[in-house]
Design a protein around this nucleic acid. Structure first.
Ligand code: ZN
Ligand code: ZN
Ligand code: ZN
Ligand code: ZN
Lengths: 150, 150
DNA sequence: ACATTGACGTTATATTGTATCAATCTTGTT
DNA sequence: AACAAGATTGATACAATATAACGTCAATGT
């Protein structure tokens, strides 16, 4: 993933939506874009301090994450309480409901687009239960290709 | 759900597996069986104290929950950090991978069995990504039937 | 009887997240 | 420039969730 390109896209996106990608927000996004794995809010605060030689309160990190999540630039993994940059920032296609394959061995996450017909079937099955889905973010745990062979 | 029946089944199940459903573990399970909503570990500790007029350390609650989860009697909702009794303790059929419909308004949870062909398709789509699923517990958030009408 | 194991208590600590109020920076308007 | 209004961030405190480390006791099997 090209960090610079993603940042450009993010800035453009924020401009369109009339919100501001401040320097600190941008730094937090950069940190996540450059991270191989999802990071906790406090880990992000540490990385921020390492990268910018400037302390940042955890509270602020949470607020910036909240902003980035609202803009669809970052996702939160509820099952691990960690955050990661959206893999599709630079894509042109509209962002579907995200599905994550989380490797429990090496922590890498693959944000995939599950077949939309499959999601539709899933939603159908759910509406058969008279339930109204808000946003079906799926977090699936297992082993990635590399970790299966070991 | 018939609590007594579920407890009987749980005891039988533990006997079969050569593990012990101690009185405290049983009480924790009872508390969850009688709860309308998922409960956090600390909430369970409070309920335990109310019900049995005896304090119990949160640490112990976590250990008992761990045991009950291992035995498939209790599930943990990763997205809310709460615990609930399995809805299928009294069922004879084998327990499939659990899928939860979580109402974000009233907190009730419906543990459904999603169509197995759908799960198979999901697993296929995932293995196409060279990923090996461990246990695809799905937690889906939205509104239950009652809360949709309000 | 003895060693081993499991269950539970106790205490401390780590991790994750929120509430509140103050300070500062932008922005638009006068 | 001066000001008001709002957004952003800092600072502090605290709540909620979870784990680590170590001790006690009872059950179990030899
Ligand atoms: Zn995404
Ligand atoms: Zn892996
Ligand atoms: Zn279940
Ligand atoms: Zn509801």
């Amino acid at each position: 993933m090209d960090t610079e390109k993603a940042i450009d896209k993010a800035e453009h996106n924020c401009l369109e939506h009339g919100v501001k990608l401040t320097p600190k927000r941008k730094s937090v996004l950069e940190i996540l874009l450059e991270s191989k794995h999802p990071q906790s809010a406090y880990e992000i605060a540490d990385l921020y301090q390492q990268k910018l030689a400037e302390k940042i309160p955890a509270m602020s990190v949470y607020r910036m994450l909240e902003f980035l999540i609202e803009q669809g630039l970052v996702h939160k993994l509820a099952s691990t309480n960690k955050f990661l940059a959206c893999s599709h920032i630079t894509c042109t296609h509209s962002h579907k409901t995200p599905q994550f394959l989380i490797c429990d061995n090496c922590q890498t996450v693959n944000e995939i687009g599950i077949d939309s017909s499959l999601i539709a079937a899933l939603e159908q099955s759910i509406s058969d239960n008279h339930f109204k889905l808000s946003s079906p973010q799926l977090e699936l745990h297992g082993l990635c290709e590399a970790c299966q062979t070991n």
